[in-house]
Design a protein around this nucleic acid. Sequence first.
RNA 1: GACCUCUUCGUCUAGUGGUUAGGACACAUGGUUCUCAGCCAUGCAACACGGGUUCGACUCCCGUAGAGGUCACCA
Length: 453
Amino acid sequence: MSKAQSEKKNSIDKDISQDVVTRFAPSPTGVLHIGGARTALFNYLFARQNNGRFILRLEDTDKERSKKECEEDIIRSLKWLGLDWDKSYKQSERKEIYKKYINHLIKKRRAYISKEVTGNRATVIRFKNPCTKISFQDLIRGQIEFDTTELGDFVIAKDENTPLFHLTGAIDDYEMKISHIIRGEDHISNTPRQILIQQALDFSSPIYSHIPLILGPDRSKLSKRHGAVSLKEYKDIGYLSEALINFLAFLGWNPGTEKEIFSLEELIKEFSLKQVQKSGAIFNIEKLNWINKQYIMKKNLEELAVELIYFLPEKWREKAENEKKFWRKIAGLERERISTLSEIGESINYFFEEPNYEKEKLLWKNEKSLNNVEVYLKKIIEMLSKLSEKEFTSHNIKELIWDYAEKQGRGNVLWPLRVSLTGLEKSPEPFIISEILGQTETIRRIQNAINKL
RNA sequence: GACCUCUUCGUCUAGUGGUUAGGACACAUGGUUCUCAGCCAUGCAACACGGGUUCGACUCCCGUAGAGGUCACCA
């Protein structure tokens, strides 16, 4: 390729990429749910990777069903996910534009006022269906064809001030210069109607990409009856937005490599519409949990600790907030065994209050005698007392006790130590717990255990 | 019912005519300084079916079956 040709090609590529405009067009009749979030994500990724623009369009033409709270929820959830848009519109504020086009269509005899015998209005505005074959190229599915005859003269507006979905969508996509429509597969059968309107108005058609649906375990479209679907619920359970983004991206898309953890920035680079799957994907909460855990482990500990406080039972929040160092150590320890943030607080009582347990619990499975347990615990107190407060670190404690535990049988010694500290059968190892609790409290709890015996 | 779309391990998927069909989650077993978690290793497990095309089909074509979506004066 000559230099001139190459320059020309580059400038063409540049022009194409500058023209990319995508949109996420939810109707605020419900809160943002998993499916919508993924649609928004794909639109966002495609726009960003092409240096294009991403538009948020609230389709609130249905006055009765649109709700302010839903609108707020959608905006809040999108922001939480980090999907920022360049411009936003509300269809309810664009009535004059639609009105102009409605009258234009009527004047051109591509639409007409229709007298109705059924329904709740005497007249509506119907589109005059030319009854042709419509075909369009879908970026994911290839060519799709429809015969529009069966659609009939469908309704495009209740009256000139009350346009309906297909009409507003076609007009806005044109007016907002949308280059690519990326939406759920459930819109495939809406496409011919919208193309018909575009043709009647002499609009060029955007490029369509219909992405597969997210399915419930029964393979039907994911909905409320499958459990939690709103973004807010996932946030409240303690999923990190980065994890949700990563997971959602992988529902229907994958990079073709074995890498599975992607930041939003990496997704912008790697995402490709052409690699999007055709068939629906079941929402697999177990994989989400795994990904969430990856992000919990990766996250900056200080930030994680702060977020975690919110998920603590009310009564401990203040202590956690006031004793940052103490709480950060706990968070660092516990992050390993949770996969959602709300799991914190289920079994960490012992950091905040005296453990309560039966003395039999102090007995390790291989140990027969409670008398021995008493001997071990007394010995441990004796050893721990030798350390200064400053030396009371998990490393030093372990070094101090280890040989003794080895000699007596590790489980025989470590089990009752751990139980005396936590009262639990399952917990982290006792050395780090001792460190976090501090010397005084550790020794006090061991003494309490001895008193029980 | 009509129209449209889809079909690789239980799940998410890699694969574009010749592979022991790969990875991840889940599950199981073993290992790792008591338990849990983690980590490591190993294992389990799939091309819906039937015809073609071809020297050769998971890959291409045609059927069948199954699944899903849409059929509003909702979006």
